[in-house]
Simulated scan of single mutants.
Amino acid sequence: MTDNGTGTHGAVLQDAAPQQDGPLVELRGAGKSYGNIRALHGVDLTVRPGQVTCVLGDNGAGKSTLIKIISGLHQHTEGEFLVDEEPVRFTTPREALDRGIATVYQDLATVPLMPVWRNFFLGSEMTKGPWPVRRLDIARMKATADQELRNMGIVLDDLEQPIGTLSGGQRQCVAIARAVYFGARVLILDEPTAALGVKQSGVVLKYIAAARDRGLGVIFITHNPHHAYMVGDHFSVLRLGTLELSASRAEVSLEELTNHMAGGAELAALKHELAQVRGVDTDELPEESDLTPPVAPSPEGTP
């Protein structure tokens, strides 16, 4: 990947796609139970075009369950799930893809030893010639992959190189560009910066912002409030399967977001116990009254 100082990594992003007015995806009081285990309960989430909705939470908070509901892998057992303001109940991930909802998981669903262009079209290869002697249209796939990557601001020196030779950040960016090319309107990113260093995380965050600028609705799943605050427009913090915080960027500071993400309320409740431990300075710990979460604004027309 090169950077010649023009645009993002040497390419100019395409004009943003025209945006619709209503939300692309909306959850209203959604939940999921596995028998007697309630993994998710009463979650409200709205994904709008041209916005990054960040979903934060510790391990076991319910982030994976939320992804599975929206991506069509699992069905919700309570509440409503709407796409383009129409109630839906997906039974397979293919149904979600057909409605423009694409998910980029941490493993990226790539084959490390295959070239970049093969991974770009993996499972959706272009072919040419009459049946039954159709064959791969390699030249067209290479040209299309190169053009689409450039449209997202990604310039690779050699599309023939195995995708496993790229850095983690570059592979994430290829996966994002692939999802956009195949018609994604809602892009779900599952912990895209979890295993990356600072520099590569910055590269991924740059392309998340590029996807937003193209008019996509982005759901950024992360446990890193600093990464979320860099690109996020709305923040939802999950804790033990429930929505602890729902606030726009203007309603919450990075410090408040970090406190909610780190379980600041629990730390405040234990402040008096920590104060009894020799050598522990509790002066900077938050008070419980400082951690009252902002109340999510009611939809227009409701009290």
Rank of each mutant, 00 (worst) to 15 (best):
M1V: 08
D3M: 13
D3V: 13
N4V: 14
G7M: 00
G10H: 07
V12K: 03
V12Q: 06
L13P: 03
Q14P: 05
Q14T: 12
A16R: 03
Q19E: 14
Q20G: 12
Q20Y: 05
D21V: 07
L24P: 01
E26V: 13
A30Q: 04
K32S: 13
H41A: 15
V43E: 07
T46K: 12
T46D: 10
R48I: 01
P49C: 12
V52A: 09
V52R: 00
T53Y: 09
C54I: 04
C54F: 09
G60Q: 08
A61P: 03
A61K: 01
K63E: 08
K63T: 00
S64R: 02
L66Y: 00
I67G: 00
K68A: 14
S71A: 15
S71W: 00
H74W: 14
T77V: 14
E80K: 11
F81G: 01
L82S: 05
L82P: 00
V83W: 07
V83Y: 02
T92P: 03
T92G: 07
E95H: 05
L97D: 01
D98H: 12
D98T: 09
Y105G: 01
D107Y: 07
L108R: 12
V111H: 06
P112T: 09
M114V: 02
P115L: 13
W117V: 11
R118H: 08
L122P: 01
S124D: 03
S124I: 07
M126F: 08
T127W: 07
K128A: 15
P130M: 10
P130N: 04
R134T: 07
R134V: 01
M141F: 01
K142Q: 14
A145W: 03
D146R: 09
Q147S: 13
L149K: 00
M152Y: 01
G153N: 07
V155W: 02
L156T: 00
E160A: 15
S167W: 04
S167M: 06
G169C: 11
C173L: 10
V174W: 01
I176L: 04
R178D: 08
Y181L: 13
F182R: 04
G183Y: 06
R185T: 10
L189M: 09
A194Q: 08
A195C: 10
G197C: 13
V198I: 14
K199S: 13
Q200F: 00
G202L: 09
V204W: 03
K206S: 15
A209G: 10
A210V: 09
A211S: 08
L216P: 05
G217Q: 10
G217T: 04
V218P: 03
F220G: 00
P225M: 06
H227V: 10
A228Y: 01
Y229V: 01
M230E: 12
V231A: 03
D233C: 13
D233L: 15
S236A: 14
V237T: 05
L243A: 09
R249N: 06
E251L: 14
V252Q: 08
L254G: 00
E256L: 15
H260I: 10
M261S: 05
M261F: 06
A265Y: 04
A265T: 06
A268Y: 04
A269H: 01
Q276D: 06
V277F: 12
P286R: 03
L291F: 07
L291Q: 02
T292H: 10
T292N: 11
A296Q: 07
P297F: 09
P297R: 02
P299W: 12
E300D: 12
G301Y: 10
P303R: 13
